[in-house]
Amino acid sequence: MSTIGYENWAVDLAEVGPVYPFQGTEFFWVILGVIFWLVWHRIQYVRESAHLEEARHIGDEDKVHDLLDKY
């Protein structure tokens, strides 16, 4: 058994196509990859929101609001 479909290279390379592991499960890997990508956005978004909320209360809030009013 070989995950790439070849247990040796006693082959004519003209007749060989894909050699990556687990051929036939490409769709599954792409689904995993897409989940990884979307979860990354979710984690980043949540953390950034919390961080910005915390950061907006740093410093002298009255002074910051006074300055904002001037703009």
Binding site: E7, N8, P21
Partner: peptide, 12 residues
């Protein structure tokens, strides 16, 4: 694990 059983070399 990922390449289990794949040939490590073109030699017999």
């Amino acid at each position: 694990f990922m390449l289990w059983g794949a040939p490590s070399s073109p030699f017999e």
